[in-house]
């Protein structure tokens, strides 16, 4: 995280459109590369902030496919190594689940 904070010492480069900005990165929530890059320039420097802001990684696969991709894009935008970015907070349920199942406590022993 320390390197993320170092970012504040100098301003982020100005947002410049890239040719592949409309590439879908998070398939479940249809978030594009450009949206993620833009979010960094809007002040979202951590992966948890990006997730709340864009819903990337909040869909059916819960970031299984895109979290590494998002990490790479954010790190590049911040000019740091992906290793310096803390992954998002993990919460239950770790797998997609229907609300009716989540609320259905098994009472009798199997």
């Amino acid at each position: 995280m320390s390197n993320v904070n170092n970012r504040f010492k100098k301003d982020l480069d100005k947002f410049i459109t890239e040719f592949d900005d409309d590439l879908i990165i998070c398939r479940c929530e249809e978030v594009t590369k450009g949206e993620i890059r833009r979010a960094v320039h809007d002040g979202m420097y951590t992966l948890t902030e990006i997730r709340r802001y864009l819903r990337s990684g909040m869909g059916l696969c819960q970031g299984q496919t895109c979290q590494i991709l998002v990490k790479g894009i954010v790190a590049k935008e911040l000019g740091i190594s992906p290793m310096d970015l803390e992954p998002v907070i993990s919460r239950s349920p770790t797998r997609p689940i229907e609300m009716k199942v989540l609320g259905n406590e098994g009472k009798e022993a199997l």
């Binding site: 239950s92 349920p93 797998r95 689940i97 229907e98 009716k100 199942v101 989540l102 259905n104 406590e105 098994g106 199997l110």
Partner: peptide, 10 residues
């Protein structure tokens, strides 16, 4: 917590 047969088991 485990989802078994659409029930949550502890």
């Amino acid at each position: 917590t485990v989802n078994i047969n659409d029930e949550i088991r502890h």
